[in-house]
């Protein structure tokens, strides 16, 4: 896997929401590149733009959102690259679910409550013109359901309300693998699940990722998930990517002051309490943007330059990127 090999490339993306108070800059100069087979966690607090960024990848932004500038390019397994921000709804319909799967928050409620599960597997196959007979589709569905530790026949013949939350989540994972996608985006995949089910599903996703060879982006504010699942951690703050680091290095030595604060703000089951604290201040207003670094009002290292100049995301050594004036650019 060469570092230049990628399947999704987001460059300098700006997304605004039109609101009564004026334009809300939800995503501000975000850049991100996903490599084949990679698992990337996007972390940040509510309102930092992580869900907006994910929705823009499948072009499912709310109606009051505008992509102001930047580009999103997707490279399918076969064929040439697609520029998502300028492609038609028709192109997107064929891409969604067959190439890029988006699982929204509380995705257990994405099933149609009035039809049995098998109908929903068949409908998915038919909508994407799979060249298989119904019997073949059902056979494959059964195999996929068994892969996620479910009783295939029983689940296919159930209505969604007959399954528990964890079972629905796993059924959805099976359904998402039906068309063999290359990229799966999970928005808060486990918030509605308890700790034990959560751990099972994460381990399952990780092993499926290797056996079925897809990439994953998952959006979360639960750092416990991240340690178990991610190769790379992308931290977002106020619409911008502020740090992009390999997972192990991120937890051992976070670079951006916001990442440091976020790691210190989350109690762990085995750590002492002395390091725990809350980042002072609150998240900035995204309608009236201040000059300079958006984190500067809450940052203990803030100095003159931070108030004047927005730091750019740049290499700070190794495979790590950070947007902070504390770090001078490291050229490799």
């Amino acid at each position: 896997m060469s570092p230049d090999d990628w399947i999704l490339d987001i460059q300098n993306l700006f997304i605004d929401y039109r609101t009564k108070r004026g334009n809300l800059h939800a995503v501000h100069d975000a850049s991100l590149r996903i490599r084949p087979g990679e698992s990337v966690a996007v972390i940040g607090e509510s309102g930092c733009g992580k869900t907006t960024l994910a929705a823009s990848i499948v072009k499912m932004l709310p109606l009051n959102a505008d992509i102001r500038s930047g580009s999103i390019t997707y490279k399918p397994r076969k064929g040439k690259s697609v520029s998502i921000h300028s492609s038609s709804e028709q192109t997107m319909r064929t891409l969604r679910w067959s190439e890029i799967v988006m699982m929204f928050q509380a995705s257990q409620s994405s099933f149609n409550p009035v039809t049995k599960i098998y109908t929903q597997f068949l409908d998915t196959a038919r909508a994407h013109r799979m060249k298989l007979t119904s019997q073949q589709v059902l056979k494959r569905s059964r195999e996929l359901l068994e892969l996620v530790y479910l009783n295939g026949d029983a689940v296919l013949n159930s209505y969604p309300h007959e399954l528990s939350g964890g079972m629905k989540q796993r059924t959805l994972i099976a359904l998402s693998l039906l068309l063999d996608p290359q990229l799966i985006i999970l928005d808060e995949p486990t918030t509605a699940l308890d700790l034990i089910t959560q751990k099972r599903i994460l381990l399952l996703l990780n092993s499926l990722r290797k056996s079925h060879n897809f990439s994953m982006i998952f959006i979360t504010h639960d750092l416990g998930i991240v340690t178990q699942l991610a190769d790379r951690v992308v931290t977002m703050y106020a619409g911008a990517v502020v740090e992009d680091s390999p997972s192990s290095e991120f937890f051992a030595d976070p670079k951006h002051p916001y990442s440091v604060g976020l790691l210190r703000a989350i109690p762990k089951l085995n750590a002492a309490f002395e390091h725990l604290y809350s980042i002072p201040g609150s998240t900035p207003d995204l309608v009236r943007r201040i000059d300079g670094c958006l984190f500067s009002p809450r940052c203990e290292h803030s100095h003159d330059r931070c108030l004047r100049e927005v730091p750019q995301l740049r290499s700070v050594g190794g495979h790590r990127l950070a947007a902070c004036h504390l770090y001078e650019e490291v050229t490799v």
Binding site: T197, K199, L269
Partner: peptide, 22 residues
């Protein structure tokens, strides 16, 4: 034991429940 083990404490023996569903 199981919920603490799911919380992933390093150095603690992993302790898993059977089956998946409550």
């Amino acid at each position: 034991k199981a919920i603490l083990s799911a919380g992933d404490i390093e150095g603690r023996e992993s302790y898993d429940l059977k089956g998946v569903d409550i």
